[in-house]
Structures are given as C-alpha cells and as structure tokens.
Design a binder for these strands. Sequence first.
DNA 1: CTGAAAGCGCTTACAG
DNA 2: CTGAAAGCGCTTACAG
Lengths: 344, 344
Amino acid sequence: MTVHDDVTTRPRNATLKDVAKLAGVSVATASKALNGKDNVHPDTRRRVVEAAERISFTPNQLARAILGKQTGTVGLLTHDLEGRFSIPILMGAEDAAGAGQMSVFLCDARGDSIREQYHLKALLSRRIDGLIVVGGQTDPRPSIGRSLPVPVVYAYAPSLDPADVSVVPDNTHGGMLAAQHLISTGRRRIAHISGDVEYLAARERANGVQRALADAGLPLAGGEVLYGSWSESWGRSAALTLLDRDPQIDAIVCGSDLIARGVLDSLRDRGVDVPRDVAVIGFDNWEVLVQGSRPALTSIDMNFEALGRRAAERLIEAIAGRETPGVETLDCRLVVRGSTSYGR
Amino acid sequence: MTVHDDVTTRPRNATLKDVAKLAGVSVATASKALNGKDNVHPDTRRRVVEAAERISFTPNQLARAILGKQTGTVGLLTHDLEGRFSIPILMGAEDAAGAGQMSVFLCDARGDSIREQYHLKALLSRRIDGLIVVGGQTDPRPSIGRSLPVPVVYAYAPSLDPADVSVVPDNTHGGMLAAQHLISTGRRRIAHISGDVEYLAARERANGVQRALADAGLPLAGGEVLYGSWSESWGRSAALTLLDRDPQIDAIVCGSDLIARGVLDSLRDRGVDVPRDVAVIGFDNWEVLVQGSRPALTSIDMNFEALGRRAAERLIEAIAGRETPGVETLDCRLVVRGSTSYGR
DNA sequence: CTGAAAGCGCTTACAG
DNA sequence: CTGAAAGCGCTTACAG
C-alpha cells in the first residue's frame, strides 16, 4: 500500500500525517514514537512503527533540518580533476560519520576560484553542517574565509590561515620512510629523482629523503636531487642522467609512481636489474601504475582514506563546537613490492 | 554587518525576516522582491536587495524545498572505487544543470547492494529530485526498483529492467572505431587482445573489432580474440603468444590501456618497432597510462563527461515529467597518438 | 501517556 | 503595490 499521486504513477512521499492517520494517533505522538522518545505507550509505538513501514515512510530530513537541527549533510569541495584523492577521501568521510549518517555533496571546482565561490554559495543555501576543502596539490592555499556560518576543514592542501583546521599527509615523513627502507635493506648509494620543484610536495619529499640519508651518514648519490616534471618521460631521462653521472648507484627514490615507471623503463633498457642492481621506490601507491610494472613497484602511500576519515572526524568535532585550529599531519605508509625486495 | 550568535563567534545565517526588517517591509514583500516577482515597486526591490546583500542573506533552500518545490539536489550513487568514471560523470552532470544550479550527493556503494540501500534511504530522506546510478562495469545491473518517488537514470551500466532509463557508452562502436582507424592507415593483419571475457565490455569491443574487419574483408589476425585479464602482465604475455603465432601481424587492438601498455612492453623487448612494424591501440584513454608510454598510446575514449552530461539531461527531463525508457547509447571517440601514427 | 498549539524559514493565494 | 494569513512537514514545550 503506497500513496499515489494523481497525475503520475510515481508514488508520493508519505508524510508523518499519513502515518499518524493510519495508526490512529496525533502527529505529535507519531513523531515521538518514531524518534524513540520516552512517554509513549509500547503498544502505541508498535502501531506507529508498523504504519510507517506499511506505507514506507521516509522522514523528510528537510523539515527536521529547518527546525534548527542539523541537516546531516556536508560539502566536499574538491579541485581534483581525476578523482584520485576525492573518492578515497569521500569514502573515508562516509566511514567516519557512520554508514548512511551523513550525506556528502561533492563539488568539483576544477582549480577555479570563481567556480569555488559558486559552489560554496549553493552549498550554504542547502545548509550543510560543515565543509571539507580538498586541494589539487599539497601547497597551502588561500583560506575560503573566516566568517562562514559553518566550520571548514582543509584536506590534502592546508589553508594559509593558521586559524583554520587542516589535515595533510606528511610528505617529509614519506620521503624518510622511503629512504630508510632502502638503507635498512642494505642500499648505500641512494639517489632521488622528483617532479616539479615548484610543488611543496616535491621539496618536502626530498627533505625527508635527505634527512634520512644524513641520519645514516650517507651522501645523496648523484650529488643533488634531480627535479623535473611529474611524468614518465622525465623519469626515463633523469634515470639515464643519473646512470651516467654515477654508475654505482644502488637505489633511486622517485617523487611519484609515474616517475618511477619511467625510471624502471630506462634501467631495463640499460640492462640494469631491479632490484638486484638498483632498487626503485615510487610515491603515491597508485594501484594502476604500481601493480603491473616489472617488477611491481614499492611505493609510499599517503593514505587518502585515512586522511578523509580524519578530516571528517575533525569536521564532526568542529560541528559539535570543539575546534582546534592548525595543521594536522598524517603519516605515510610504506608498501613493499618487488622493486626493492628480492623475496617477492 | 553580520548577524552573530550568542554562544559562538560563528555568524548565524541571516533569514528573510532579518532582510525584511532591515528593508522596512514585510517578509512577503521581501520574498517577492528577491524572487523577481511582478508587482513590487522598483525602489522597494532595490532596498530589499541591498539589505539582503548587506547581511549576506543566503536563502534557505530547505524551507523552499519543503513547500513542495524541488530541492535542486540529485544523488549520484556509484560503484566506482577509484573515481575513474564518477568524477568526470559528476562534472558532466554539474555542467548539464548549469553552474551551481544543482548540487550532487555523491555516494560510493563500493559494489555492495546493502550499502546501496542505505545510501538510497539517506538520499530519499534528503528529498533528492532524482538519482543517477553509476555501475562499476558496463554489464547490466538489477534495477534499483520501479516505485521510487523520484526518477532514476542508470549511467555506464544499464538497468536490466527495460522500463528504466539508461545511458551507456557504445563499446561495439568503440571497437569498430579502433579497427577502422587501423585499416584506414593501411594495416591488414590486425589482432585483438582483450580482458576478462566475463565482462560484457570485452565481448562488445571484440564484436566491434570483428565487424569492422569483416566489413573490410579482413580476417582477425591470430585466429581468435585473446581474452585474459585487464592487466599489463596479461598484455605482455598475450603479445608474446601472438608474435609466436603470427609474426606477420601489423596491428593490435587492445581491450584496455593497461593491456596496451603490457603489449607495448613486449613488443619493445622483442625489438618490434611501434608504430612502424606494429600499430597498437588502447581503450579508455586514461591520461596517466596513455601519455607517458613509448610511443604515446592511441586510444578509444568513452567520453565519460559527455556520458554524465547526457545522463543528467535525461534525468532533468524525467524530473520535468518527460521520461522515455530504454537504453541510450553514446559514441566513443578515437584519440590518435604515436602508437598508430608516424607523423607524431 | 496523548494531543493541540506554536514555530522553523520560506512562498503563495488573497485582501486591501 | 503591500502585507496578513495559511501552510509545507516536522519537533517540542506545554496542558491535560
């Protein structure tokens, strides 16, 4: 038994009034019964619940939200054109809130601040409880503003305003992890090829690598970090440069998986065996790049899902009024595969 | 001048009442003035608009929606774990509705039908105007149900129920495009390596390839389609099989870019020049795989953004009451790069 | 334990 | 042209 509209065959949404009528009680009582409030006779509650099920009553959250309650919705404003970060971050956020508790408006501003403003306006008019802003790269970005009516958490790229809440991966730590892994597996002549030096992520990862080497009393092989672009072709040419400069290198940390793929190609072309002669490690742990390479690529994972979960947790705290400004940093994770390990 | 809450420093949302008071008119008049209704004195309208701007009034869409209007929100229920389809489809949908007109709830059900039900329930309680369901692969999927209170459009994977509205890429056409391109550039011994035969996409693409060959009076080189898995390693081994079976082949259509990457690797290992000796074409046009290969990979693009745009258009039509059931098929697009073309 | 009433923020006939 | 009133679907004091 569903309620039908007159003009179309599409069922109209049942209202609390429908439920109340069917159960023979007032709307007030029906409301209390369904929301598990005290002071409702068990029999009454049962009748109401049954009635609600009979007509598949779905409470109108909009009406509830208008009463000053929260809407149970948050905005996720992203600049990630490929969905590489957004989807895992979204999944983490879904999990943090609990299944089906929180619905997420995803908007892609595509790196355009005008579009960001449009989306922001639309989200606020829909009365989101809070907002997560996901950057397209890890460089700090302008704050979206202090005087929004809802709390904001910045994920992946921190806000430039220290009064904002940001959750970002610790790229320095990631670089250290990579180098430490190589050192602990016996490598001593470790080089680093990275992407565009304009990216903070590139510089931080390089810092991490160099710090780990310094801690172990090792020099950076190749003399300096080879910065270039985030591409396979750069990986290929940089690897050749490196081999010419220092044929003795026994490991290369790469600033991204794409770069690492290029490096693997060039090593193969030169007849250098991976991992026997040279170990290679990537960054991103991007499944599609990492699984199929020869050999499979050890990589550093930035834990996007955990990042999303944490961002959502921080947002939920802020919505509840417990806000602690500043940049929170999350550890990266080493995923070992054949490119650094004989056993596999 | 913003309206402030007592307990926190976060500004409270201004209401229409605030605007009316500031402009010295009634709420009714303020409403009409802001919504561009007739019968409002120009001076009054100006005063109201100014007042609204002064206190950055953002109309509460929830209140509007509760009056039986539409919410201007749609759900996008996806099963795409990597965001490979979802984000472009989302962007297409955003564009179709017009910037900032329509907000999209993105939910990832992760291939789990229980989670799908949870999300569906949450979306309906938030009174979405319509729903787009995005499959994880192109195989037809169970209908989410006929008696939803809102229209549904299936994208990428069609619904099994012919009464539903579906928009899918034409994989057969994609396969034909690939083979025709090779034929038109002079290839005559064309083979086809694809992924898991259990996937409809694999079989349809193969049908397209074979149809184009038949139309040109050419046999399928290698004797049969080589089905396997959607991986680089399968691409590598299948290419070797193929070369052993028929050393004369001059082109290979691959069922995915990942497979094509594996094929390119094996050809290179065997000293076969691409594109001179053998042309290779992929499927998906996945930037990250296609750009950096040696040579860059010609590929078939399924136009996810156009797919999302079309799905949103169909949804908007359905919301307006103009619904035409059935499966709509969208053409694929050939993107030529170095792996099939000398010039580049 | 139950229900009538007020109210959330808006829009829309309907009087004036 | 303007505003008082009713109402959307719900929740929450407040009487009974």
